[in-house]
Write a protein that binds this DNA or RNA. Sequence first.
DNA 1: GCGATAGTGAACCATTTGGTTCACTATTGC
DNA 2: GCAATAGTGAACCAAATGGTTCACTATCGC
Lengths: 110, 110
Amino acid sequence: MLNDLQLDKVFHALAHPWRRWILGLLLDREASVQEFAAALPISLTAVGKHVNLLEGYGLIRTRKEGRNRLCSVEPGALLAAERWLRNAMWSRYRPRLGSLPEDLTLLRLR
Amino acid sequence: MLNDLQLDKVFHALAHPWRRWILGLLLDREASVQEFAAALPISLTAVGKHVNLLEGYGLIRTRKEGRNRLCSVEPGALLAAERWLRNAMWSRYRPRLGSLPEDLTLLRLR
DNA sequence: GCGATAGTGAACCATTTGGTTCACTATTGC
DNA sequence: GCAATAGTGAACCAAATGGTTCACTATCGC
C-alpha cells in the first residue's frame, strides 16, 4: 500500500500528457528513450528528464543495454493509484449512489 | 470521455495530499472551506486556493450559502481518471499478464 | 448595532517544473 | 578508425505552484 507521499508522486507523474503517453507505450512493450523522443515534440534531453522522473517515482524501471536505455513499466504504482481512486469512490461515494443522478451511468464498477 | 488536457488537470488535482483529503471528505458529505481549514495545517486563504483549483478543474462544485461556501464532489472527473488507469492496464498490460510475476496478485480486476 | 466568523483579493516569496542549448561520453556500424 | 547515434550533465530560463500576510467584504448571532 502506497502512503500519501508516494501517491503524490504517482499522480504527479500521471499529470503530464507525455508521461502518460510514455507509460501507455511501455504497457505494450519495452522501449528506449530515443524511441520516445522520436515521437514527442521535445528534445531528447527533456525526454530523459521525464524518464528520470518516472523511474525516480517508481513507475518504470530502466536498464542500460549498449548505448540504449531500455525502459519497462513497474505496474505496482499504477495499480496503487487505480486502487486509491476506486477505493475512495467505493467506500464513500458508493453508499449514496442510490440518491444520485445520471452521473451513475458512468459507473462501470460492475 | 475526458481529453488529455482535462486528464492533466484531474491528475494534477489529485497530486496533493490536502486536495485528496478534501475530496475524501466530500465523498462522504458536503463541507465548507472553513471545515477544511480547521483540519489542515495551512491558512484559510491557502485552502481557498485549493478549493478554487478543485472547482476550476471540475472535481467539485461549490455554492454560497450565507457566509459559507459549501462544496460537493463532482464524480465525473474522478471516474474518468479511474477509467483511464483501468483501461490503460486492461487493454495493454492485461494481455501479457500470463507471463508476468507476482505483481499480479495486486490485480483485482475481477 | 456590533463583534465574531467565513471568505476573497492582492501582493509577495521560494521552490519546482518543464523546457532549452551546448558540451561531453560511450557505443555502434561501416 | 571514424562518423553517426544514444544518452547525460550543466547552465540557464519562464512560468506555475503552494504558501504567507494584510486588508477588505459580507454574513451571523446576540
